[in-house]
C-alpha cells in the first residue's frame, strides 16, 4: 500500500517520498499576484489514482497552487507563474497548450457548491454537451450521478432546479458534474468547508470510491480529513512547501518541526 520512500536529491534537505507513477509534476512552481509572491518554488509530484492532500494554515497559498493545476488562475488579473507543471511530461503552461481543452482533463470542485441555476440533469450534461459529447447523454448523466452517490436521491427529480437541493447534495452534484467529463485528475478546493458533518462524511466516503478511477488533489485545512482520506500530503506554509510525503509519514513521523506543530494542532 505504501509506496517506497527514497530520499530525494534536491535543494530541499528533507527526505521526500516519491510516488512511482505521477500524472502531474510540480517543478519549482512560484506564483505571484501582481508582484506579490503567493507560492515560492514548490516541487512535488501527484500520484496516479491516489489522493494527494495539500494542507496548511489559511493564506498559505494552497488554493492558489491548486488553481494553477487547471489554469483557473488565468482568470485572475496579474497572476504570473514561474517553474513548470508537467502533465505526463508536457508543460501545462506551454505556449501551444489550450487551457480550455486542458480543463476537460483536469476537473475541479469548488469550496462552495456552485451548481448552475438549471435542472439537475442539465448541470451534469452541460460540460459534456458543450464539449461535443456524442455518446448517450442519459447514460452519462446517470452514471455520473451514481458515481457521485447522488443518483438515488435525485433520480425522480432530474429535471427540477439544482438550487432546490441541500448544500451537501449540491456539492455532490458539482462532483458529478466534474466526473461527467471523465477527467484524469479531479481538483477539490476545500470541498467540505461549507458543509455540515454528515454531508462531509458522505463526501469523504465518496473520495475513497473515486480513487480507483481518478487522481484526486484535495486542498483542506481539516487535519482529520487529510489524514483519513489521502495517500500523500503536502504541507505548505507562507507559500513554501515545508514537507511532502505519504500521509502516514507526515502525520506520524514528520521530518520538520513546523509540520509536527501544525499536524498536532499547535498552530494554524
Amino acid at each position: 500500500m505504501n509506496p517506497q520512500t527514497t530520499p530525494e536529491a534536491s535543494d530541499s534537505e528533507n527526505p521526500i517520498s516519491i510516488p512511482e507513477n505521477s500524472v502531474l509534476d510540480l517543478q519549482k512552481v512560484s506564483i505571484s499576484y501582481s508582484g506579490n509572491p503567493a507560492v515560492n518554488g514548490v516541487s512535488f509530484p501527484i500520484a496516479e489514482h491516489k489522493i494527494t492532500s495539500i494542507i496548511g494554515p489559511s493564506g498559505c497559498g494552497k488554493s492558489t497552487l491548486l488553481r494553477s493545476l487547471n489554469r483557473m488562475n488565468d482568470f485572475v488579473d496579474g497572476v504570473t507563474l514561474d517553474g513548470q507543471i508537467l502533465y505526463m511530461g508536457q508543460d501545462l503552461y506551454g505556449n501551444d497548450i489550450d487551457p480550455v481543452a486542458l480543463r476537460r482533463r483536469i476537473g475541479m470542485v469548488f469550496q462552495k457548491p456552485n451548481p448552475f441555476p438549471k435542472s439537475i440533469y442539465k448541470n451534469v450534461a452541460w460540460g459534456p454537451s458543450i464539449n461535443g459529447y456524442i455518446g448517450s447523454m442519459d447514460e452519462l448523466v446517470e452514471q455520473s450521478l451514481v458515481q457521485a452517490a447522488l443518483w438515488e436521491e435525485v433520480k425522480d427529480r432530474l429535471h427540477e432546479s439544482a438550487l432546490g437541493l441541500s448544500g451537501g447534495q449540491q456539492q455532490r452534484l458539482c462532483i458529478a458534474r466534474a466526473l461527467a467529463m471523465s477527467p484524469d485528475i479531479l481538483l477539490m478546493d476545500e470541498p467540505c468547508s461549507a458543509l455540515d458533518p454528515i454531508s462531509t462524511a458522505h463526501i469523504e466516503d465518496l473520495l475513497f470510491e473515486l480513487k480507483s478511477n481518478y487522481t484526486i488533489v484535495i486542498v483542506t485545512h481539516n487535519m482529520q480529513q487529510a489524514s483519513r482520506a489521502s495517500d500523500y500530503t503536502a504541507f505548505l506554509e507562507l507559500g513554501n512547501l515545508i514537507e511532502f510525503g505519504t500521509t502516514r509519514q507526515i502525520f506520524t513521523v514528520p521530518q520538520q518541526k513546523r509540520t509536527e506543530e501544525y499536524v498536532t494542532g499547535r498552530f494554524g
Binding site: Q90, A101, Y133, I134
Partner: peptide, 22 residues
C-alpha cells in the same frame, strides 16, 4: 510542440470541436 498538442487532445466519445469553439 505538435506531439504535445495531439497528446492533449481528447479522443473517444468527444468530437474535436475546440478550434471552432475558440
Amino acid at each position: 510542440p505538435n506531439s504535445e498538442n495531439t497528446n492533449l487532445k481528447k479522443t473517444g466519445l468527444y468530437k474535436d470541436n475546440i478550434q471552432t469553439r475558440r
